[in-house]
Amino acid sequence: MIWWIIYVCLGIGIVFNLLASLGLLRFPDVYTRLHAGTKCTTFGSIFIATAVMVYGLYEWWKGNDAMISMTVHSFLALLAILITNPTGAHAIARAAYRSGVKPAGAVVDELGGEKDD
């Protein structure tokens, strides 16, 4: 039973991580690639960290006392990913815009100075 939770979490995590790298290959410019590279890896990491946390709890319940710290430390690593990933993506997007990369095929660009109405 507990192994099925771990299998499902790992499966969802792998699927979204693979989708992230596929999106990185398929999308046309930096901004759309950031969409794939940030959202999907964060979501996949949440599930993979959950699987490791559940596994640590299971080992702890079986009587291996030190494994509770695997759960706690995985949670801290997940927290670090959740806070740093969107901030890093924002930094890259701003740097890309300021270094002159325009969004490819954009229907509207209100940052570029000209208004649409």
Partner: peptide
């Protein structure tokens, strides 16, 4: 995003 990765339907803008 997964749907857009597979189908490639995008219409970006800022």
């Amino acid at each position: 995003v997964a749907y857009r990765v597979i189908t490639g339907k995008i219409k970006p803008g800022i």
